[in-house]
C-alpha cells in the first residue's frame, strides 16, 4: 500500500473515531411540515416556502436562458439543453408520435422534483429556524439561540466542547443527557424555515393529482370522451345480452380503481423515499458524527435523481397507455 493511501485511511479512521466522541442533538422527526407563520390568515409551512424557492429558481433559469440563446450553447444553456434533450429522447423512446404533447408535463415534473429533492440536502434546510415555546421539555431540541434584529433564531449546531463534560457526568446521566441543556444552548420547540418540499405529503399528493389529471386529459383528448370512458364502464357486451359481459364490466371497474390507486402510489412513493432519506440523514450523524454522513449524502443525491426520473417516467408511460386504445396496442404488439 502506498504511504499516501495509508495516511488518508488512517486520517478517515481518526475522524470517524473522533466524531463518535461528540454528541449530536437527538433528532426530532415530524411527519408533517411545520407551520412557520400566517400570511393573510393562511398557514404557511416550511415546505411551502421551500417549494416557492424551487419555483423561483426554475423561473429565473428559464428567463435567463430565454434571453440569451445562442446557436453555440455555453455554460448554463449547455446544461439545460443537455437535460431537456435527454428528457425529450426519453419521451420519443416511450411515447413515439405523442412525444411532443407529453414532453412539457414530463420535463416540468422531472425538473421540479429533482430540484426539490436536491434543495432539501442543502445546509440550512432543517437547521435554521424559529424558536417556539422556549424552555419546553420533553419533545424538544437543544440549539443555540441567535438574536437577529427583532427575530429570535434557533440554530441547530453540533455542540462544541462538552465531550469532557459528558464523560464527567458518568454513565447514569449520559442516558439522560439527550434532553439536557448543553452549555450555551437552550431547549424548546424548533420550527425550521425550510424543509425539503418532497418530504411532506401535501406537495407529493398535489403533484400526483396534477399528473393523474393530466394523464386522464391526454387519454380523453386523444381517444374521445366516450371511447376513453368505456375503458372503465365497459357494458358493451352486457347490453347485447351476452352474460360473459359481466367480466368485462368488472375488469373495467378494477381499472377505474387502479387509476385512483395511482394517485396514492405516486404521492407516497416520492414522499416515502424522500422522507426516509431525510430521517436517515438525521439518524446517521446521531450515531456517527463525522465522515460517515457524507456517504449517505451521496446516496441521497442518487435517490433524489432516481425518484425524479421514476415520477416523470411513470407519468410518461401511463399517459402513453391512456392515449393508445386497446385495439391499437394489440396491433402494435403483433
Amino acid at each position: 500500500m502506498k504511504p499516501k493511501t495509508l495516511v488518508i485511511l488512517v486520517g478517515i479512521l481518526v475522524l470517524v473515531a473522533l466524531g463518535m466522541q461528540f454528541p449530536t442533538p437527538k433528532p426530532e422527526i415530524s411527519l408533517q411540515a411545520e407551520t412557520v407563520g400566517l400570511v393573510l390568515g393562511f398557514p404557511v409551512s416550511n415546505a411551502l416556502i421551500a417549494t416557492w424557492i424551487t419555483m423561483a429558481i426554475l423561473i429565473l433559469i428559464a428567463l435567463r436562458i430565454r434571453g440569451r440563446t445562442g446557436d453555440v450553447p455555453s455554460g448554463l444553456q449547455n446544461l439545460i439543453e443537455f437535460a431537456l434533450e435527454w428528457i425529450f429522447s426519453l419521451c420519443q423512446n416511450v411515447a413515439g408520435k405523442n412525444a411532443r404533447r407529453f414532453f412539457p408535463l414530463v420535463a416540468t415534473i422531472f425538473l421540479f422534483v429533482i430540484l426539490n429533492n436536491w434543495m432539501g440536502l442543502l445546509p440550512g434546510y432543517g437547521t435554521i429556524g424559529l424558536v417556539k415555546e422556549p424552555g419546553k421539555q420533553g419533545h424538544s431540541y437543544s440549539f443555540n439561540e441567535v438574536q437577529l434584529g427583532p427575530l429570535k433564531l434557533g440554530l441547530l449546531m453540533p455542540p462544541t466542547g462538552q465531550a469532557e463534560a459528558k464523560t464527567e457526568q458518568g454513565a447514569k446521566e449520559t442516558a439522560k443527557a439527550d434532553h439536557e441543556t448543553l452549555p450555551g444552548q437552550i431547549t424548546g420547540s424548533f420550527v425550521p424555515f425550510f424543509r425539503g418540499a418532497s418530504t411532506t405529503l401535501t406537495t407529493t399528493i398535489a403533484l400526483a393529482l396534477v399528473a393523474v389529471a393530466m394523464i386522464e386529459w391526454f387519454g380523453i383528448t386523444s381517444l374521445g370522451f366516450f371511447p376513453y370512458i368505456s375503458r372503465f364502464i365497459n357494458v358493451r357486451r352486457l347490453r347485447k345480452g351476452n352474460f360473459m359481459g359481466i367480466i368485462d364490466a368488472f375488469v373495467g371497474l378494477l381499472e377505474g380503481v387502479a387509476e385512483g390507486a395511482r394517485i396514492i402510489s405516486f404521492g407516497f412513493r416520492l414522499f416515502g423515499n424522500m422522507f426516509a432519506g431525510e430521517v436517515l440523514l438525521l439518524i446517521i450523524p446521531f450515531l456517527m458524527a463525522w465522515v460517515v454522513p457524507l456517504l449517505f449524502y451521496g446516496l441521497e443525491l442518487f435517490v433524489g435523481a432516481i425518484q425524479a426520473l421514476v415520477f416523470a417516467l411513470l407519468t410518461l408511460v401511463f399517459a402513453t397507455m391512456a392515449a393508445t386504445s386497446h385495439s391499437e396496442s394489440h396491433e402494435a404488439q403483433h
Partner: peptide, 13 residues
Amino acid sequence: ILGIALAEAIAIY
C-alpha cells in the same frame, strides 16, 4: 424502472 416502480408500489401500501 417501470417494473421496479410497480413492485415498489406494494411496499408503499
